[in-house]
């Protein structure tokens, strides 16, 4: 008993918890009629929720490591808004018909690639130098997010003024509707990205110390920043493509992770974060959809709680 490290116990405990809520999600109140169909539906959603949770969690922890800051998250910095804007721009550049005839996989892979490049370009310049004025960096990200969202709606209107409503609907996150066509690709890509991130763990530990400490320790700082941002780009693409933008979820997860894990080692942090996020999403969706009958509102409630948590962090001066 005492041989097992507390962190291993934590991971085992979280995995068990996730297994329990997943089992509950799949088998609770399963009707006899159309059993196979509903089972299939529930399993698809379960895999989707776990993938989104893991992608959001790992991308947030990675991003905070690159920024050497516990308040910044990809969503707060406008990352997912950038994804949506890019999607709209792709439609315009490729033309609506060409875009629609593209296979879902090809479309998705193109989007992931473009977002990675943009992420490295934009956030690499913004964060790369160690972001001396962290307040200004956060503010910039928040404003960029607003800019991307406005530009996205604007372009959406240019495309077809009558479908403003549809454009707007994609801007609100929903865990209710997960795109099943994308799921196999999303699962594969995020598994690969997460595995790579865990492999880079020890180097990320050094990166988290900040540029001024990491460079004297012999870390190839710029290369690792670019690599980490690329992984963040991939994971944000996955989660945004599946459910839409969720601004504060990653912040809650990263906060909980750093609180619970009690270590700064990424090989522990990343799996813990992924498990926590997946558990919250599955349990939350179960609670809201089955118990409260409020299937569509989990995202709103998470935004609310996450926003309050963010303000709490600001007030406690935990910005640096």
């Amino acid at each position: 008993m005492s041989q097992i490290a507390p962190t291993t116990r934590l991971i085992a405990l979280l995995a068990l918890l996730l297994a329990v809520v997943s089992a509950l999600w799949v088998w609770q109140g399963l009707p006899d009629n159309g059993r196979a169909f509903i089972l299939n539906l529930r399993l698809t959603k379960l895999v989707g929720l776990i993938t989104v949770g893991a992608a959001v969690a790992v991308s947030t922890v990675l991003f905070q490591t690159v920024a050497a800051n516990r308040v910044l998250t990809p969503s707060i910095m406008g990352f997912d808004a950038l994804y949506m804007l890019m999607q709209t721009v792709l439609v315009i550049v490729l033309g609506t018909t060409a875009y629609v005839t593209l296979p879902a996989s090809g479309k998705f892979l193109t989007e992931v690639g473009v977002l990675c490049a943009l992420a490295i370009l934009l956030f690499g310049t913004l964060l790369g130098k160690g972001a001396r004025d962290i307040g200004r960096t956060i503010l910039t990200g928040v404003i960029l997010g607003i800019l991307f969202r406005s530009a996205d709606s604007f372009l959406g209107q240019l495309l077809d003024p009558d479908t403003f409503a549809t454009v707007q609907s994609t801007q609100i996150a929903s865990f209710n509707t997960i795109d099943a066509d994308l799921l196999p690709w999303a699962v594969g890509i995020s598994l690969a990205a997460i595995a790579l991130a865990i492999r880079l763990g020890p180097q990320l530990d050094v990166l988290a110390l900040g540029r001024n400490t990491a460079v004297p320790l012999g870390l190839r700082h710029s290369a690792l920043v670019i690599g980490a941002l690329a992984l963040v780009g991939v994971l944000v693409s996955v989660s945004t493509a599946l459910v839409g933008p969720v601004t504060f979820f990653g912040l809650i997860v990263a906060g909980l992770t750093h609180g619970l894990a009690g270590t700064a080692r990424h090989r522990i942090l990343l799996p813990v974060a992924a498990l926590i996020a997946a558990t919250i999403l599955v349990a939350g969706q179960f609670l809201f959809e089955r118990a409260l009958g409020l299937g569509g509102t989990l995202a709103v409630v998470i935004e609310f709680a996450g926003g309050l948590f963010f303000i709490h962090l600001l007030l406690k001066g935990r910005v640096r």
């Binding site: 307040g135 503010l139 609100i172 409630v301 609310f304 926003g307």
Partner: peptide, 25 residues
């Protein structure tokens, strides 16, 4: 933290906006 004042404001707007969206829903 001069720059955090607007950030706090934008987040507060988001929180109140979430309440509005929830009730509206």
């Amino acid at each position: 933290e001069v720059m955090l004042v607007p950030v706090a404001g934008i987040i507060l707007s988001g929180v109140i906006g979430a309440v509005v969206t929830f009730i509206a829903w």
